[in-house]
Design a protein around this nucleic acid. Structure first.
Lengths: 206, 206
DNA sequence: ACCTGAACACCGTTCAAGT
DNA sequence: ACCTGAACACCGTTCAAGT
């Protein structure tokens, strides 16, 4: 047949509209906050009819869920990077604090995106199971670090490895939320340093 | 002059519309979530013209801020009640855990209301300074409990009393958020018990 | 003084119609 | 196969007009 499958321009003059929508949504969210995303405004900025969004996402919630998933994927990667490479401490508690600090840094560098990731209960009805994949990945990193620590005698009391992983997640999310709400004044350059100072006494690192 | 200042019916046939609006808003938020409040729907339920809302609140955000303030006032009262009366422990860490558990219980009993209280950065531009009053009240309770504990030798390391108060606030908000997002499965009747089990190892109570 | 009706500029979603 | 234009049922906010 005569159709050209390889030509990038042959599919759509914007290239990959689904991807363009997600990227423009991130920008819009950054400007107007997690609540203010509007599909019509989004389409206007890209230069397509607003109805064409529905060719790529079932509805607004589906687009938002895709944006949230992109964010969790990046956040999980940042957490992994925090305990990969040189100058990573060997002390289990210190490693855990590092991972939490990387989480806090990502969230506070992308506050509106983080708002979309944690704000609306997107997968409450099980609509977007793939959203859980990077979230589980991030959580599993905490679990494996804690289990590694337990073999070395850390995090012995206070319940299971999961209990400890949840404690860290609860604390870092609370930290991020309070800094974001300006309940604590922290300069952007001090976000990680202050996080380490706050969490360390709780997990007993030196 | 002939006007009747004392007759309750003479002012408005709904009595106190501002109050009615806030109460109906709480109900509506409970049904549709923190995002779904609509002034027109609110007015429809009460039976007034939607424009009359603007006689009592400058805009939607002002009404939401008033609802949030009502919530913080109730939450602060619940925290005070947790360390008032009989069978309140004397141990400083145990008292702090009790206050946190009362916070968690209130938040998880009124999840949508709590979402309004913590979700949008309502006072970011300093529009609603009175919103800070009950929030400061709640925070001061944490501070004074911690300072009391410090005189007895608790919370000695790890920074100032404010650092410790923030740690507790961060943790309890994170706990509430993760339970609300169903990242942890906790039966409503076990919310306080599980909170105590999670926080106690972090603050070193027996 | 307080409430109403109409108007304005927006939304999300659907669907027949175009190419 | 993919995008468009028009329509529908909603919003928040404003304002002249009613009582």
């Amino acid at each position: 047949v005569a159709s050209r499958k390889t030509a990038s321009r042959s599919t759509y003059h914007h290239g990959d509209l689904a991807r363009t929508l997600r990227e423009e949504a991130v920008k819009l969210i950054r400007e107007v906050g997690p609540e203010g995303v509007a599909l019509r405004e989004l389409a206007r900025r890209i230069g397509v009819n607003h109805a064409s969004v529905y060719r790529h996402y079932a509805d607004k919630e589906a687009l938002v869920a895709a944006v949230a998933q992109d964010g969790w994927t990046e956040l999980a990667a940042a957490m992994h990077a925090a305990v990969t490479g040189d100058d990573v401490p060997a002390d289990p508690a210190a490693r855990l604090v590092r991972i939490g600090a990387a989480y806090a840094r990502y969230a506070l560098a992308h506050p509106a995106h983080y708002g979309v990731m944690t704000g609306p209960r997107l997968n409450e009805a099980g609509r977007f199971p793939s959203l859980e994949v990077p979230i589980d990945d991030a959580f599993q990193l905490l679990i494996s670090e804690i289990e590694r620590g337990r073999k070395l005698g850390a995090f012995a009391d206070g319940g299971t490895a999961q209990d400890w992983a949840l404690r860290v997640w609860m604390f870092v999310h609370g930290y991020v939320s309070l800094v974001m709400a300006r309940r604590v004044q922290v300069k952007p350059s001090r976000v990680e340093e202050y996080f380490e100072r706050m969490l360390t006494p709780l997990v007993g690192a030196s």
